[in-house]
Design a protein around this nucleic acid. Structure first.
Lengths: 227, 227
DNA sequence: ATATTCTGTGTATTTAATACACAAAAGCAA
DNA sequence: TTGCTTTTGTGTATTAAATACACAGAATAT
């Protein structure tokens, strides 16, 4: 009979293979007041209270990590139908107090004013923080997760022009530039920025002038978007 | 008393939270005969035999996904001490027959000739496949995982000059170019390629000429590498 | 020794990135 | 309504990077 290396048998998936819980954490970025913000939550009572955390929660048997991320975000903030991008998995042995947990992180981009926070649970605080003014007491490894997510947003912004729902349907080129500067954390030249944007041919001029701003700037929208 | 939304309670990590097995799959890329290859394995007896799969296996309670990926690769191929990069998580509900499994994928880069396959288990076949000549019967979602991994290798190669252990310690510029062409799946101009490589200042000329090749090419190595 | 194949190199051209200034438009204040 | 201030929108010159392209010399193979 064939003899099988026990190590090799153990790496096969079997009914009794080791199991642990999966969670998803969502780095939800928002843009308002000209700065990039991220949504953090805090339990105000009970275990591990007073630490700010990314919205997150456990995956169930009937859902993928993507579905779980959407669910978690919706439950904690009421936000729905946001495009998410997977960032990375975290699996250090001591990540969680209660038990072994592997986490898959995501990011999403929204406008805070479009998604007023619904405080869905009264033992949890939910709050936007400017990225350059984060609280000290961020729990678990969520500071790292947040950094990794921000890196990925930067990367995706540089490569494509993906800014999700961070701006309203129509916006001025100056608003777009301010957003870029907030995400990339660097200043951009107005004329060079416009040159680059225009040759991407992803925006169209609505023909409408924004009121209340000196100079009378045009409003743009993403091409292919209907009003 | 405070009333708590049951949905919200359920997303908290608890002892009885849903659990599933985690596996890691490794896309091990190798470069020989001037083409990029990937290592696939096949069970030759028993359940789900005759499907080619990326080397993979279940994570245990004492290891991270990174450690698991190294372990799995070592058990199946004898390969050790390879730098791995995490690619992505896969969590579709029906990914595995036996039970719910979430997989985290990795890639690694080696030279096949440095790592002769140790057939560690005699009910498993292990074989290198040229990337442009993959078998039809790749099991589970491993074709997708492989594609995603290859994309990430391309991306990382373009951004930095990371080619892992895909070449021997010393190599000619032509060998390096052939490697780039194999990974990127496009032809490169010799003079422009050398210009770009040289201005990265990551290689040093060993001063040794490679024998057996017409023209007598210099051997290079990565800067900072001792012989 | 002769033919063949591979090596190593430079320049001209195109394209992209950067630096930089001012007149006209709209709002704001008196 | 007038004058002041802020913001808009635009072009050109410079530098850096990407691309296209050819040939003499070195080592091998016969």
């Amino acid at each position: 009979m064939k003899r099988i290396n026990p190590d090799l048998e153990n790496i096969q998936v079997k009914q009794q293979s080791f199991e642990c819980s999966i969670t998803t954490d969502v780095a939800l970025f928002g843009f308002s007041d000209g700065v990039l913000k991220v949504l953090l939550t805090k339990r105000t009572v009970g275990f591990r209270k007073d630490y700010w955390l990314l919205p997150g929660g456990v995956m169930e048997d009937y859902e993928t990590v993507e579905a779980c991320a959407s669910k978690v975000l919706n439950y904690l903030t009421g936000i729905k139908n946001v495009h998410m991008e997977q960032v990375k998995s975290y699996s250090a042995l001591d990540r969680h107090d209660v038990k072994r947990v592997v986490t898959v992180s995501f990011y999403a981009l929204v406008q805070p004013q479009d998604h007023p926070i619904e405080q869905k649970i009264d033992v949890t605080e939910v709050k936007w923080f400017a990225l350059d003014n984060l609280p000290e007491n961020i729990g678990f490894d969520h500071r790292q997760i947040l950094e990794d997510a921000h890196k990925m947003v930067k990367l995706n912004l540089r490569q494509n022009m993906i800014f999700g729902e961070l701006l309203p349907e129509t916006f001025t080129l100056n608003e777009l530039q301010t957003l870029y500067e907030a995400i990339l954390e660097e200043e951009l030249d107005k004329r060079n920025f416009r040159k680059k944007i225009s040759q991407l041919e992803l925006l169209e001029n609505t023909g409408i002038v924004k009121k209340g701003v000196k100079g009378g700037p045009w409003l743009y929208r993403k091409s292919g978007t209907t009003i």
